[in-house]
Structure formats: C-alpha cells, structure tokens
Write a protein that binds this DNA or RNA. Structure first.
Length: 460
RNA sequence: GCUCCCUUCGUCUAGAGGCCUAGGACACGGCCCUCUCAAGGCUGUAACACGAGUUCGAAUCUCGUAGGGAGCGCCA
C-alpha cells in the first residue's frame, strides 16, 4: 500500500540534523512503498519565519537528494504548500469548529495567562488553561469585542474521555482528555496555531504516515481531537527517539556542528551523511555502505528506535571515508577544488577526510615544509649527514626516480627498509606519514627534492 | 508539580520465552601486509540499569526502584 509521508519544517532556523533524519525516514518510507513524499513549509509564525531559511532548507534537502513529489517549487494537488498561504482553508475550518461548539473565542491576554500558569505551578498543579472564557455568553463576548479585544480561538477539549491511538513505534497509547487544557487553534492575529494546522494539513494533503520526534508524542491526542472534531482522517503517527549529543543531552551548539549546512560547509559528503543518519535510531538490514538510491529498499520502518540516539562524529567520519572511497578522481578533484591535477588527487585521496586535509600536501608540492617535529628530527639525526650527502649525489645521477634513487643510496650506505626510506620521506615531506613516496617524489621534482635533501647533508 | 516516554558493549544497533557461551557495525588494542599513513585480511577487549515476580526456562512477560528525556506556550 502506497505510503504518503511529509516533512514539515518551519523556516525559523537552519535545518537541524535531527530534523533531516526524520525527513530522510519519511522520504525513504514513501519511496519504499511507491508512495509520495510531501514537503510543507510551516511558516505561520510570521515573527520568526525568514525567507532565507526557507531557501536554505530547500537547498539542503536538494543537496541530500531528498526529492519531494509535492511541495514548494514543484506544486501538487494540495497546493499551496506554505501554511502562510492556506489561511482561507483554515478559516472555514475554524468556523466549523465554532459552529459545532467545539471551539470558542478566548479573550484572556497573554499576561493573564502567564500569571495563571505561574499560580498553578506554584500550587503544584499542572499549568493548564482555566477555562475562563469557555462559558462566556454571547452578550459578554459582544461587550469584550466592543472594547476592542481580539480573541484567540480555543479548542474545547471534552471532559472525561480517553484518546487512543496506536503509535507506529511506541505501540498502543491511551491518554486522558482531563490532562489536556483547552488549547489555542487560532492566534489573536488570525493565524493558525501548530496543533491545528499541522494536523489539519496532514489530513487534507492525504498524508498517511507521520514520522516525527518523540517530543510530539504527548501532543498527539490534541491533534487527534481536532481531526476527529472536523471529521478528518487520522494519519498514523510514529514518534522516533530524539537525536542527542554524545552526553545524552539534546543536540545543541555546544556539541559542535548540528545543522546540515555546517557539515556541508566542512566538506562532509551527502552520501556519507545519509549513510550515518540511516543508522541513527534505525536498523536497516545491512551493515555496510548503501548507495543512497538503494536505501529505500533497505529501510525498515518497524525498526525505528524508541530510545534516543547519540550522534557520534567518529561514525560520520567512517561513512565519509566510505563515500570518498567510492568517488571518481574527477569528483574528488572538484570536491578538493584542485580538479586540474589528477595525479595529485589520486595520490592523496586516501590521506584526506575533509578538504582541509589536502592543504599540507599541497604545501609539500609547492611551498615550504613545516618545521620538523621531535619524531621527524630523530629520524633525520639517526640517518646522519652522510646519508643525505649520498642522497644528493644520487638524485643528481638519477633524478626523481625513487626506485633507482633508493637502490643507489642503499648500496652506498648499506641500508634498506625503513632505515632507507624513512629519512627520505621525512626530508622530502617533513612528516613520517603520508601518501606513497615514489609518486610524491615525482611530483615534487628533482630540483625541489635536491634542495630538501641538501639541507640535511650538512653537519648540524 | 502532573502526565507520558525511554534504558543491550564507549557509540549505532540485532534480539519478539529456549536458536544467547547475547550477534554485527563504528571506535579502540594486537598480528599480517607495508618506508609511513590509508586501504585490506585475521584477531582481541567490551553490554542485557537495578530489584522482585511469572515460568521447567527471561535480554525478551509483569510489577517496583533508579537514572534520563519530553509535554503541559498566542514556538513548532
């Protein structure tokens, strides 16, 4: 059965890792079943919504290849896909709720409500709307409006009932309506509030499966109540465990990078990030690398996790390596921004995880060597000036050919293996590790190589 | 405070009463290969939060405890 899923971000900030993960799961589920994936922009909060966040969001999703079948830019049967443009739709629904007596205008001010909540908290009871405006008569309402009061619209939560639903990941849930206060569905400025428009749009757009963070689990009954009151079809909800930092606390700035953009800017590859996200709070049926195109087939919605998953950059790095290993030299060149030098790319590709790792090797080819560290100095000292004098003589004879060079030096100095190669590596590159030496030497060239060897040929 | 949710190696996870001497992946250690690093091959260390109960038998079921998290907003 085709599954219709959606991703419904609000353009009030950068796309968070936790959000893309649910976007990915939603996308995969739709693709797996041959269904549809919808993108909806939840921009009802005009204060905080920004156009550039929206654009960035779309760009990151595109970068990750999470293509939406309906939504901004591509349109679809349920357009418009930005909530800021769906006001008309909402107002007919508000009217219906009001006519049915399932919603009522509330004239309490934000300050009054805040005070009331504070008082309730102090008294040790849950902070819930007291119901002040629920029983207001028509005359009282007229009077308040005459004084210029602009009401919000509250949903009248029925007393003494239970709301039941089966969560896709947590199983059967049952909540008491008495634990829920009357909540706002329309703000003072006339805009729709989250509990309302989020639920209503899912139903209206034909969404069958909603995947979202655990933090919404206890809010779900509210949305179900709204849907039921309006006679709209309930989607199935699945609440996945949250994505948290290494310390188990909600992912935040102090954990380092948390937005997709940051990882992208640092040079992480989308395929690697996707492979990592695929396994956070989810178990597919393979351990190894998955091409993004193969992911839908291996996605297992019944293996979505309840427990919070910790984001560990070490694992991301692993998938980055895997992604790199599968890239063409041309693609790596472009990624490193040195597309013109194919031999160099091929040489250093296994010593690079992020583009910045290429810089030292570029310097080895073109610039000056960094000062030697302790270990490097020991290697040079152990070889001795005579070794390097022999190396200089050898390079004058055979040029930048490591095999012939090593043979000459080896014969003259009676050395082989690490004793022979390591001093050469250190003198030539300034480090004890790095890519294969022979091609590196070729790229360095005889002149530069000679100068670097000569430095160590003198007595210290 | 009230309500709800969660808990298997350091991390991501497999596990739906006997297949578990708890499996895999990442990370970490060792060995092989090798001038080094990376890759690759082999290999090692490492977990059922705790306590009761049900059962012939429990990581799996029930209850409790502890710890963590979320919600209770004119944010989403």
């Amino acid at each position: 059965m085709p599954v219709v899923t959606r991703f419904a971000p609000s353009p009030t900030g950068s796309l968070h890792l936790g959000n893309v993960r649910t976007a990915l799961f939603s996308y995969l589920w739709a693709r797996k079943s041959g269904g549809r994936f919808i993108l909806r922009i939840e921009d009802t909060d005009v204060e905080r919504s920004r156009r550039h966040f929206r654009d960035e969001l779309l760009a990151e999703l595109a970068w990750l290849n999470l293509e939406w079948d309906e939504g901004p830019e591509v349109g679809g049967p349920s357009a418009p896909y930005a909530q800021s443009e769906r006001g008309l739709l909402y107002s007919t629904l508000f009217a219906r709720l009001e006519a049915q007596g399932e919603a009522y205008p509330c004239y309490c001010t934000a300050e009054e409500l805040q005070l009331s909540r504070k008082l309730q908290r102090m008294a040790g009871s849950p902070p819930r709307y007291a119901g002040t405006c629920r029983e207001l008569g028509a005359a009282a309402r007229r009077e308040r409006e005459a004084h210029g009061a602009r009401p919000t619209l509250r949903f009248a939560v029925p007393a003494g009932r239970q709301v039941e639903f089966v969560d896709l990941v947590h199983g059967a849930q049952r909540l008491q309506t008495d634990d829920i206060g009357d909540f706002i569905v329309r703000r003072e400025d006339g805009s729709a509030a989250f509990f309302f428009c989020n639920a209503v749009d899912d139903a209206l757009m034909g969404v069958t499966h909603v995947l979202r963070g655990d933090d919404h689990l206890t809010n779900t009954p509210r949305q179900l109540l709204v849907l039921d009151a309006l006679g709209l079809r309930r989607p199935a909800y699945g609440h996945v465990g949250l994505l948290v930092g290494a310390d188990g606390a909600p992912l935040s700035k102090r954990h380092g990078s948390t937005s997709v953009q940051e990882f992208r800017d640092r040079g992480f590859l989308s395929a690697g990030l996707l492979n990592h996200l695929f396994r956070l709070g989810h178990a597919g049926d393979v351990d190894g690398w998955l091409e993004p195109a193969a992911m839908p087939a291996h996605f297992r919605p019944e293996h979505l996790g309840k427990a919070p998953a910790r984001f560990d950059e070490a694992q991301l790095v692993h998938w980055q390596r895997e992604a790199l290993a599968r890239m063409s030299p041309a693609a790596i060149g472009a990624w490193l921004n040195i597309a013109d030098d194919a031999r160099f790319v091929e040489l250093i590709r296994h010593n690079v995880i992020l583009p910045q790792d290429a810089a030292p090797w570029l310097a080895v080819l073109r610039g000056d060597l960094a000062p030697l560290g302790d270990e490097e100095r020991r290697v040079v000292a152990a070889a001795g000036p005579a070794f390097f004098a022999a190396a200089v003589a050898a390079i004058d004879q055979v040029g930048a050919d490591l095999r012939r060079l090593a043979k000459l030096i080896g014969e003259r100095m009676g050395r082989k293996g690490a004793e022979l190669y390591m001093p050469l590596r250190v003198a030539l590159t300034g480090r004890t590790h790095g890519p294969e030496l022979a091609p590196l030497l070729e790229l360095i060239g005889p002149q530069l190589a000679r100068r670097r060897l000569e430095v160590h040929a003198q007595d210290p």
